[in-house]
Structures are given as structure tokens and as C-alpha cells.
């Protein structure tokens, strides 16, 4: 390609020596797809457990509150890489997943443990997001529901949660952004996401730096516009809330 000449005299340690691109672009394209798949699927899977954890956290029973609190504490106070390793070698050392390949490049025997680890980790954070969202709904809403004879469950489901969910959507979207970044850790266990792609290219071309520069650029170009968009939506929602 015409721009291949641009990189001719660049050192292999140069920031922008992208001469590997014509041959290795697929690593990055598939890497991005894998990364987005990891992030979106793991946060989506985290939503229901997180809701359960949040409701448990707000329970009257000390035991139930404690169980949820312990889960959240464990997952927030240990590194994701450690959690990932324990789940991959521990949990999925026992459970065997067939080496089935999704879309041709997503190896389920690695993808599923990765997603499970990210989802378990994310659910601890999302639980706190939900808890804050539920507490942000005026207590009078639940009282009004109860005064009409609705059960606590109905009041939560029909009145409080729909308002809470709307409040937490931006935070939830931010959690996906966090996961896009955090999922890079999955490269250590051979999941072919973006960071893994960059590593693979670096080691097969001996161009040691530029693949990572490119990965950084790609991460930035996904996350920065996304976070700006979320901010804009948040601002609009706040305006809509004014009564």
C-alpha cells in the first residue's frame, strides 16, 4: 500500500511504526470485536445478580445484608486478575467447556470463563450502582405504594425500580466502558481480545511498541466518545427530571 513507505526507516521501537498493519490488521479488528463482546456480555450478565445483591443489601435481615456485603467486599477488594485466574483454573478446571468456536475466533472454552469472571466482578460494582439508584428514589414513593395496599415486592417492582433503573442507566453504560478496559486482563489467559492481538503482533513482528500504541488509540477511540455521549444523555435526563 502507498503508506507502507511511511514506515520504512522507522525503528522497531518507534511509537508509530504501523508497518505491520497490512498483514496484521485482522488481529486488531477481531480483537476489538472480542473486547466489545466481552464487555457487553459480561455487564449484561451482571445486571440480574447485581439487582439481587442490591436488594439483599437493602434487606431488613442482617444475615441477608451480610451475605451480599461479603460478596461485594470480596470482589471489590481483590484484583480482577486474581479473580480471573482463580475462576479460570479453579471453577473451570472442574467444569469442562467444549472447544467450540463462535464467529470463528471466539473460543468458548476461554470466552466463557472470562465472561463469568468479569460478570461476577462487575456484579459487585453494579450492585452498588443499583443500591445508590434505589436509595435515590424518594422514600415517599414506597410509602405511597404501601399505603395503597401494595406489597413491598410490588412497590419495589412497579414503582421504585422503574425510577431507579432510569437513574442508573448512565452509570451502567459507564460500567461497560470500564469493562472494555478491564477486559484487557483476559489477554493473560489467551482470550483473543484487543490486548491479546497487540501482544501477538508485537511478538511475531518484533515491532515492540507500536502495536500497543495502536491498541491504546483504539481503546481511546471507543471509550472517549462513548463516555462523552453518556455525559450528554445524563445532562438531558437531568433536564427532563425537573418538575
Amino acid at each position: 500500500m502507498w503508506w507502507s513507505n511511511l514506515f520504512k526507516n522507522m525503528s522497531s521501537a518507534s511509537f508509530f511504526n504501523f508497518s505491520f498493519l497490512p498483514k496484521y490488521a485482522a488481529f486488531f479488528v477481531q480483537g476489538v470485536e472480542y473486547t466489545l463482546l466481552l464487555a457487553v456480555v459480561s455487564v449484561a450478565l451482571a445486571v440480574l445478580p447485581a439487582l439481587l445483591l442490591a436488594l439483599m443489601r437493602l434487606s431488613k435481615s442482617k444475615l441477608i445484608r451480610g451475605l451480599s456485603g461479603a460478596y461485594i467486599a470480596v470482589f471489590r477488594s481483590t484484583p480482577l486478575l486474581v479473580q480471573l485466574s482463580i475462576i479460570y483454573f479453579g471453577l473451570f478446571g472442574v467444569i469442562n467447556i467444549p472447544r467450540y468456536s463462535l464467529f470463528g475466533f471466539v473460543d468458548l472454552s476461554r470466552f466463557i470463563p472470562g465472561v463469568v469472571a468479569l460478570a461476577l466482578n462487575s456484579s459487585a460494582y453494579v450492585a452498588e450502582i443499583f443500591r445508590a439508584g434505589i436509595l435515590a428514589v424518594d422514600a415517599g414513593q414506597m410509602e405511597a405504594a404501601r399505603s395503597l395496599g401494595l406489597s413491598k415486592f410490588d412497590g419495589m417492582q412497579l414503582v421504585v425500580l422503574p425510577q431507579a433503573i432510569k437513574n442508573v442507566l448512565p452509570a451502567l453504560a459507564n460500567e461497560i466502558i470500564t469493562m472494555v478496559k478491564e477486559s484487557s486482563i483476559c489477554s493473560t489467559l489467551g482470550m483473543a481480545e484487543l490486548m491479546f492481538g497487540a501482544k501477538a503482533v508485537a511478538s511475531s513482528t518484533y515491532i515492540t511498541l507500536a502495536p500497543y500504541t495502536l491498541a491504546a488509540l483504539i481503546y481511546f477511540c471507543i471509550n472517549f466518545p462513548a463516555s462523552k455521549a453518556i455525559e450528554a444523555i445524563e445532562r438531558r435526563m437531568r433536564r427532563g427530571d425537573k418538575q
Partner: peptide
């Protein structure tokens, strides 16, 4: 208690209407 509360309507200082529902739905929900 839920059954008893049905017999006792309550009106609050700050109205506590459900903001995410129409007026009609507020009234028909319970």
C-alpha cells in the same frame, strides 16, 4: 397489613404521585 392498608387511604404532604406513570395509571395501578 397490606389488606388493612387497602381500607385506609393516605394523602401525603408531598403528594407522592408516581412520576413515571400517567395520572390514570397512578389511579388504576393498585
Amino acid at each position: 397489613l397490606d389488606k388493612h392498608r387497602r381500607k385506609m387511604g393516605m394523602v401525603f404532604q408531598h403528594f407522592n404521585l408516581f412520576p413515571n406513570m400517567t395520572v390514570k395509571r397512578n389511579i388504576t395501578l393498585a
